[in-house]
């Protein structure tokens, strides 16, 4: 880690100056990870307030920027911890009647024609590199229920391991797998319908 870039801030600690210096970075990190812009603003505010409280513990042995990010990441986990277990029942309910994706009856468990993965216009790896992908993904994450958004965000955006996510959200691993499968399936479909093939969804 190069810390020289931040050396000035380490010797001269002024939390209000941090707001100008790092506020936008923290905000940009938070926005795609929470439900709306207001929540992102609040998390950034809480991050700076916690930083002020802990400022005596900050000894400048890590860069201010990464220290602030570590506080923000903790705030994001707490944010989902508060929202997370509220809709356990909703998640299981949705899952057991997963009839919007998979067929019932003789074709039970097969993809329903309207939910079946379509061919993307390009190879998936090329397609996801094209402009606008992240914005489209961002919009699709916003459409998830909070229980699914918690699982997807912590696993795919924060790259936490499943054991830690289960511990933080106080859920079982099978509950997490249900949520992740559900979230990924919805996001895949959302991208396809709204971004890849918006004309004939």
């Amino acid at each position: 880690m190069s810390t020289s870039k931040y050396r000035e801030d380490e010797t001269q600690i002024d939390p209000t100056a941090w707001v100008d210096q790092y506020g936008d970075y923290l905000y940009r990190y938070a926005v795609p990870r929470v439900a709306n812009a207001e929540d992102a603003e609040d998390l950034v505010q809480e991050t700076f307030l916690s930083a002020l409280e802990a400022v005596s513990e900050f000894r400048g042995d890590s860069a201010v920027r990464s220290w602030l990010f570590s506080i923000l990441r903790r705030k994001i986990i707490d944010y989902y911890r508060k929202k997370g277990h509220r809709d356990d029942h909703e998640v299981y309910g949705e899952y057991h009647e997963s009839s919007d994706f998979y067929a019932e009856g003789a074709m039970k468990g097969r993809w329903k024609p309207e939910a079946a993965p379509r061919d993307w216009r390009r190879d998936p790896e090329v397609q996801t590199e094209t402009e606008g992908f992240l914005q489209a993904l961002h919009r699709c994450i916003k459409q998830l229920s909070s229980g699914l958004a918690a699982a997807f965000t912590l696993r795919e955006l924060e790259e936490m391991d499943t054991h830690s996510i289960c511990k933080e959200l106080e859920i079982t691993s099978s509950n997490l797998w249900v949520r992740l499968h559900r979230a990924r399936t919805q996001i895949r479909q959302c991208l396809e319908q709204n971004w890849i093939h918006p004309d004939n969804a």
Binding site: Y29, L134, L137, E156, R184, R188
Partner: peptide, 22 residues
């Protein structure tokens, strides 16, 4: 299901390439 897998993996790959620069 092949499409499902390939698309999911591509989405993950893209996110991981650029975690902070949305």
């Amino acid at each position: 299901c092949v499409r499902y897998r390939d698309q999911l993996l591509a989405i993950r790959k893209r996110i991981r390439e650029q975690p902070e620069e949305w």
